[in-house]
Design a protein around this nucleic acid. Sequence first.
DNA 1: ATGGCCCACATGGTGGGA
Length: 255
Amino acid sequence: MKIVTWNVNSLKVRLSHLLQWLEANPVDVVCIQETKLTDDKFPLAELNAAGYQVAFSGQKTYNGVAILSKLPIEDVVRNNPHYEDLQQRLLAATIGGVRFICAYVPNGQEVGSDKYTYKLAWLDALRTWVAAEMAAHEQFAILGDYNIAPEARDVHDPAEWEGRIHFSLPERAALQELMALGLSDAFRLFEQPEKQYSWWDYRQMAFRRNRGLRIDHILLSKTLANRCTACHIDRETRKWEQPSDHAPVVATLAD
DNA sequence: ATGGCCCACATGGTGGGA
């Protein structure tokens, strides 16, 4: 089973990229963030035609998440039952015996801002929910845009980013606490090339200079980590015309 | 020099992203 997370930054704009990518990459489950579409505008027919069943939870202009799957999607839950949130950032579903959560963690905007406070509170509540889901599902995976770079090697210039949004100590501590529930970063289960990032700013030719952050992650329960045989970031889409600023992250699970 | 770019909503410029 191949599983993917990809922040597409508007599914309306990026649908053709998604379909093109799926055609070249026959994967089983795709967690998508920032669809920026209300549910009535979701491109369900196009994705069904590509061979995917879909669960989605969107809103106007901002946020919005979806899970695509070749296998049947069961027990869909929208939002965190432990946190009231008008923003559509979370979607859970069971596929092929695996419990998935698709997560779009708040950006936080600036350390110390109201949005930063919301980000940390949101992450705290996420941990409560994930603990409950993991207690109920041995095979558990949470994929998404975490908007947090876990370590210095996940940041193109750690000195420049130290203490700033996406790399502040409280954010990194929140991610560590989530992972302390027993989750492994699929990407770090394997030897990886240096300077691997999943997001690059649109400005300043950041992609060409590889000035990026690794903020999109696939976290796996112990049982799934033992099944995981590979994980990589697919930089190719970022070279396409009018790309998302995020690249897909792909993990392979043995049967 | 703290912005530059991209998207949505709008139809000029603002809010948000990361």
